[in-house]
Simulated assay, not measured.
Amino acid sequence: MAVYTEVPEDDARSLFARLGLGDLVELRGIQGGIENTNYFATTEQDGQRTEWVLTLFERLTAQQLPFYLRLMKHLAQHGIPVPDPQADAAGDLVHLLCGKPAAIVDRLAGRSELQPTAAHCAAVGEMLARMHLAARDFPLTQPNLRALPWWNETVPVVLPFVDEAQAALLRSELAYQNHIAASSAATALPRGAVHADLFRDNVMFQEGALTGLFDFYFAGVDTWLFDLAVCLNDWCIDLATGAHDDVRARALLDAYDRVRPLQAAERRLLPAMLRAGALRFWISRLWDLHLPREASLLQPHDPSHFERVLRHRVEHPVAA
């Protein structure tokens, strides 16, 4: 999250009023993240105050947004604790603010757990599996926009900014992932709508219980195994070294498997998919660092973290 577009309070006030969400009391920009403009907002109605998240989309188009917002609505209706997009009188979830497509969702209770235990990881694994199953009958489809085709396009763009050893790893891993993706085993993996960015800062806990998943704006249709690998590469990694934490990983995998048992092919391909997840975020962080957009609040993430994760995944494959 970041602030690329400064939103005048009067404009925000008009949008909240049009959606029947009450009178705007406070609007404050959110620092962190990289993709969209985000604000916390507080409204008051009939003496009651409510907290919201207002998002202006800087890259996603109004045509792409219904997939993300309708997916969140679908999951909320199926008992998955996700932010619920607010509709206008016509039922539209995509709104216009400052010339940008925008959405308003309710703010989840709790806080992110940035130093997760095995218990936190188990809760995430269980909820991720529930989410995958709940989205099986979601009718809309849209590819994961940060999947292999994007990696193939973006690696040549970031190569001038890295040293020779990094460039060699990027090229070799990209070739490996293209090879894996073309295999019959990979094309047959179970797939559906995935979050694709379920990091520690995109999950809320309160008093030890998982209270919500949010930031679905990298979601798309992809393999469920890729989504699981993205989680493992954040929740079950030592942040200082990029090394695998087997205790936390086993807790997450076992909890996931109890809800949606993994297929034999998924277990065999997990090491390759863990590498794919690390490569995806290394590429995107290189891109965001070296080809940034202007923002009044912006903290780009360190690309070297996922370089370390990828090197560990290549050198120390993990069995499912």
Rank of each mutant, 00 (worst) to 15 (best):
R59Q: 11
E315K: 13
A186P: 07
R308Y: 00
G99M: 02
P271L: 07
W287P: 07
A255N: 09
F218A: 08
F16I: 01
W235S: 10
V158I: 15
S183T: 15
T37E: 03
I34L: 14
C121V: 08
P66H: 01
L54E: 07
E51N: 13
L286M: 07
D46R: 15
E153Y: 10
E315D: 14
W151Y: 13
R28H: 13
W224L: 14
D106F: 01
V7P: 02
S184G: 11
T61R: 05
G79Y: 02
G277V: 04
E51C: 07
V230C: 07
R248A: 13
G20S: 07
Q45D: 14
D11K: 15
Q86D: 02
H74R: 03
F306W: 06
A182R: 05
F40S: 12
D257F: 02
L56V: 01
R171G: 08
R200D: 08
A276C: 10
R200G: 05
R293S: 11
A188T: 09
H78K: 13
A89Y: 04
H179D: 15
T43C: 05
A276P: 09
A87I: 04
L19S: 01
Q263K: 12
E173Q: 15
L128W: 04
N233A: 05
D10H: 11
E51M: 13
D238C: 14
A76K: 08
E164I: 09
Q166V: 12
R268W: 12
A278N: 03
W52P: 00
V318H: 03
A265H: 11
P149K: 02
A103W: 03
N36I: 04
H290I: 04
E173L: 09
D46V: 10
P8A: 06
A167W: 00
D137L: 05
N38P: 04
V247L: 12
L239K: 12
V53H: 06
L69W: 00
V124E: 04
H316G: 07
L232F: 07
D254G: 10
A109D: 13
A118T: 13
A319W: 07
P271S: 06
P143N: 07
P317H: 00
H305D: 11
E35C: 09
L69V: 00
A264D: 14
V230Y: 06
A2F: 03
D197L: 02
N202C: 06
F57D: 05
L279F: 00
F199N: 08
P160Y: 02
A272C: 10
V318N: 03
H95L: 01
Q77F: 06
D137M: 04
V25R: 14
A243C: 11
V194P: 06
V259K: 07
H120I: 03
H132N: 01
R146I: 11
A62I: 09
T37C: 05
L114H: 12
N144Y: 15
C236L: 10
R146Q: 11
A209Q: 15
A185F: 09
D10P: 06
N202A: 09
V105K: 00
A272Q: 14
F16P: 02
F161Y: 15
Q77V: 06
A89G: 13
Q142R: 15
H290C: 06
Q206Y: 09
T5N: 08
L291N: 13
D234N: 14
P156C: 02
